[in-house]
């Protein structure tokens, strides 16, 4: 576990027994097969037969997948593999054409996104969504759930919600300190840098007090110095007992912090396993680099590929209604 390598001051908030925990959770995954759709001992998310089509394109076609509770699971795959679409489907931001999935045993099919979030399954976005013309502190406060002042009837009477607001503010301040944003609390969120926005979005998601945090490309557009601190924060979520599922392209990050890796390609899950096993998996290498990346193409192969491509183009032209 290379976590010990990170000695930056950012890590002070993270408590010492961290390494123990990662050992614990990895032990739980020891007996799990390295196969797509492998059953886990204590799954928090179980999805079955999820299919999402955009016209003629099947973006997601996941037969079965389970996400283990309390670990950091990475969802990787080449561009267009359907990772973000799968995220959207799980969190209710999009609805699949078929399939069922559950969170902590509760079926989520047809549940709107805000109810999914209230259950404790909170996501962030690939393109960071901070509320630009609200201050950092207001961005944090909005994350708190069950606020009585958010009901229209109580909103006008400040004494009814002032106490709760104060407690939320204190909790927000703690989180901002942990994410090193406390000095920015009165600035507009729109004035933050890209990396700080990622931090704010993650901190805001924690205000919801989630069980499962889903991060969509947390490292995209973040400078290397901040990357280390972000890595530490993601790990600290696991230490606090949360489950993390993240989409990422940065393989160093995946190798460094994930306990389990799920690989998607062309909408399907093609491999699963611990980081090292997955990265040497032939199917994964093929998915990223193409099956023939180290073999010379023979003339017959080329012709076959050309014929297949032509057949496919013809078929698509026939169905011209698909955009």
């Amino acid at each position: 576990m290379p976590a010990d390598m990170i000695k930056s001051s950012d890590m002070t908030a993270v408590s010492a027994p961290r390494t123990d925990k990662s050992v614990d959770v990895r032990a739980a995954l020891k007996g799990v097969e390295h196969q797509p759709g492998a059953p886990k001992p204590d799954p928090i998310v179980v999805a079955d037969g999820i299919v999402r089509r955009f016209g003629g394109l099947t973006a997601v076609d996941v037969e079965h997948v389970e996400i283990q509770r309390g670990v950091i699971t990475a969802l990787i795959g080449p561009n267009g593999a359907g990772k973000t679409t799968f995220f959207n489907l799980l969190t209710g931001f999009d609805s699949p054409d078929a399939g069922a999935w559950s969170f902590s045993g509760k079926g989520l099919k047809g549940m709107p996104a805000y109810k999914v979030a209230r259950l404790g399954m909170v996501r962030t976005f690939q393109l960071t969504k901070v509320l630009a013309r609200l201050t950092v502190m207001e961005n944090m406060r909005i994350g708190a759930t069950g606020q009585s002042g958010e009901s229209l009837w109580q909103a006008m009477f400040a004494p009814l919600w002032r106490g709760q607001e104060k407690r939320n503010t204190e909790r927000a301040m703690d989180l901002l300190r942990r994410f090193k944003l406390d000095t920015k609390k009165d600035d507009f969120a729109g004035s933050l840098s890209g990396g700080q926005r990622k931090l704010l979005e993650m901190a805001r998601a924690l205000m919801v007090e989630p069980e499962l945090v889903m991060l969509d490309e947390p490292m995209a557009g973040v400078n290397p110095a901040l990357k280390q601190s972000l890595l530490g924060h993601v790990k600290s979520l696991r230490e606090d007992g949360m489950t993390v599922l993240f989409v990422e392209h940065d393989m160093d990050m995946v190798r460094d912090i994930s306990d389990w890796v799920i690989v998607m390609a062309q909408g399907k899950i093609i491999a699963e396993g611990p980081p090292d096993a997955v990265m040497s998996d032939q199917r994964v290498i093929d998915a990223y680099l193409g099956a023939h990346h180290d073999a010379e193409l023979s003339t017959e192969d080329e012709e076959a590929i050309l014929a297949a491509a032509e057949a496919e183009t013809g078929a698509t032209e026939g169905k011209s209604s698909h955009g």
Binding site: T91, V122, Q147, E201
Partner: peptide, 19 residues
């Protein structure tokens, strides 16, 4: 009030508020 804060947040980004 927090109610007004939700409205302003919706103005900024609906999906973030939904999430």
């Amino acid at each position: 009030s927090p109610w007004g804060r939700v409205l302003k947040s919706i103005r900024e980004d609906e999906d973030a508020v939904r999430s």
